[in-house]
Write a protein that binds this DNA or RNA. Structure first.
Length: 574
DNA sequence: AACTGTCGCAACCGCACTGGA
DNA sequence: TTCCAGTGCGGTTGCGACAGT
């Protein structure tokens, strides 16, 4: 037995008996005491402290139940010992040994614990036990509301990066956060609630898209890294991969990398009140999501995180404004390599079936963006729009065709292709006269009497407008909304709206009366606005509802059109 | 009171990364 | 350059607690 530090052992002994025994799965008595050791020196025994016999007895029982693995079987086990390594719940005695070891030798070299202390635990287990339960700086107990909010924020930004999230939450462990999150989303899903608050839903959605486009190219990632946060220089290499004529048209379904919002220089730039850069800088923001992002690798730089943190939950939807380059590319990208574009189609098969569990898995399992989850209350407008059924197809089958030809057939896959096709159609129209007979989406009446707001409130005029605007110019899709967002300006940032279309813009007149959509219909749309700022403000106030409305519109249109017959439920399931 | 299903947490597992030999 | 031990991370599992019937 290693030398013991009497004070620690005394404290451990007392603490471990104060509540539930440490060996109890889920018990926190010992752990809580350990965690509070740094702040409390009280060693006064609790009324149940004389219950040591029970503890020991139970520990024996537990010990007898746990597996005893051979060192060879134990991951990270100390192969030099013949003592079978124990698995299962830790006992107080083991905790004491481990704490004592760490106090003596410090953290690290966990595989040496067994050698030095005789503890029949593998190094990994020791490390885990220490990190998750025995560390003195741990904060135990239920998460505070502030912490819960922080977790939501962090998850919106990071995805399942529990360790990184834990760094942001002092005293909390990654395992704790992970468990909390899994529990939380299960609860919310059961309750039919969105995983994220409405004001963060778009952020999540954007983040998802960014992550997905992040798989674009490792070269992009390298470029992005080189660029740094606020660097707007555009390496020529970025463009040699692109077909010029594909840069001018709206993004397609969910093909906008959220990283462009959350991790890109453009957004930082915007956040700093600068004018939006070239649309093409959009590409520069994408970083390749490594299989594992560790340590300093962060989707968000500190400044970005701070920015987001300061904006989230403040209903400051201006954050959601995309860089103007948002609309700057389409699926018709070409690559120097033969990488299938399907890999970057958000919601695509490749992504959805990917095993990159380390990445934010927005589309899978329990991490549905609320945007896709908030379907149950959506209205049922009687609007005819292109069906979203095709989305299902896209999700469930590798859109290999996209990667090959880049040509789009309006008949092959439904909405996304319809959007793409529309884009191409618009392209042709622009080439001809810049006039707007390009819209393939069915025009939508502004009034949607059946629709209710997020909380059942009647829709605002601008909500109707915003939805109708989408409907007028593109089939409704998530990307449409993003596109719309991209075409708004961040209040106070004096961002010139860079219109997808070729309508001339006065560079100086960038803060008012801007054309939101460049087609002639835009003028009609703008007639609904007293001012652009009003639009933005009201739009973002209602953005959450708009998602629902768009969803409803799309759903309705799918039924009306009879073209393609997948459902948004399928989308939600993604 | 007994049984059953669900929940939540601790621990484990497998994989990937890192750094030194 | 390769190998390997150590370490870290995220997903999964096991199991006790608890609520409902």
């Amino acid at each position: 037995m290693v030398k013991r530090e009497p004070s620690i052992l005394t404290w451990l002994r007392v603490s471990s008996l104060g509540e539930r025994p440490a060996f109890h799965s889920g018990g926190r008595g010992f752990i809580s005491s350990v965690a509070s050791a740094s702040t409390s020196t009280s060693t006064s025994p609790s009324p149940v402290h004389d219950d040591m016999s029970i503890t020991s007895e139970t520990e024996e029982r537990m010990t007898s139940k746990v597996d005893m693995d051979s060192p060879d079987e134990a991951s990270g086990g100390d192969l030099g010992e013949s003592v079978p390594l124990k698995k299962g719940p830790w006992t107080s005695a083991e905790d004491v040994i481990l704490v004592d070891y760490v106090m003596t030798h410090g953290e690290g070299n966990w595989n040496a614990v067994q050698r030095h202390s005789g503890l029949a635990r593998c190094g990994k287990s020791c490390r885990l036990r220490w990190a998750n339960h025995l560390r003195p700086d741990l904060k135990k107990g239920a998460f505070t509301p502030e912490e819960e909010q922080r977790i939501v924020e962090l998850h919106a930004k990071m995805g399942n990066k529990w360790a990184r999230m834990a760094v942001e939450l002092p005293g909390r462990t990654d395992n704790e956060i992970k468990n909390y999150w899994n529990t939380r989303i299960k609860r919310r899903q059961r309750a039919g609630l969105p995983i994220y608050p409405p004001d963060i839903s778009f952020l999540v959605s954007q983040n998802k898209q960014n992550e997905e486009l992040g798989a674009f190219s490792s070269a992009d990632a390298q470029n992005s890294d080189v660029l740094g946060i606020n660097n707007f220089e555009i390496p020529a290499v970025e463009f040699k991969k692109l077909e010029l004529n594909h840069l001018l048209y709206p993004p397609q379904l969910a093909d906008i990398p959220a990283r462009s919002l959350l991790n890109d220089p453009v957004n930082n730039f915007l956040a700093q009140g600068h004018r939006a850069p070239y649309s093409s800088t959009y590409f520069l923001s994408t970083t390749y999501p490594s299989k594992r992002m560790r340590g300093s690798e962060s989707v968000f730089s500190g400044s970005n995180s701070d920015l987001l943190n300061s904006l989230q939950y403040q209903n400051d939807s201006s954050l959601l404004a995309q860089p103007l380059g948002f609309s700057s590319y389409s699926h018709n990208l070409t690559y120097d390599d033969n990488r299938s574009f399907s890999s970057v189609v958000p919601g695509g098969h490749a992504y959805l079936n990917g095993n990159s569990s380390s990445e934010p898995t927005w589309a899978m399992k329990l991490e549905l963006p609320s945007l896709q989850n908030q379907t149950e209350n959506w209205g049922s407008p009687h609007l005819a729009l292109p069906s979203l059924d095709s989305v299902d197809i896209l999700i469930q089958s590798p859109p290999a065709g996209h990667s090959e030809s880049g040509s789009l057939s309006p008949s092959n896959s439904g909405l996304l292709d319809a959007v793409l096709h529309e884009s191409q159609t618009m392209n042709a129209s622009h080439d001809n006269s810049h006039q707007g007979n390009e819209t393939s989406g069915v025009a939508v009446n502004n009034s949607c009497p059946d629709l209710k707001g997020w909380d059942g409130h009647p829709i605002s005029p601008l909500s109707q407008f915003s939805a109708s605007v989408f409907s007028e110019y593109t089939p409704i899709s998530e990307s449409s909304l993003h596109e719309f967002l991209s075409m708004t300006t961040m209040p106070g940032c004096k961002i010139k709206q860079e219109i997808v279309d070729l309508a001339p813009l006065d560079e100086e007149d960038d803060t008012s009366n801007q054309t939101i959509f460049s087609s002639p219909k835009t003028q009609h749309a703008n007639n609904h606005l007293a001012s652009k700022d009003a639009l933005i403000s009201c739009f973002f106030d209602d953005c959450a509802w708009d998602c629902k409305q768009l969803h409803a519109v799309a759903t309705s249109s799918g039924q009306a059109s009879g073209h393609n017959s997948c459902s948004w439920d399928a989308m939600s399931a993604v």
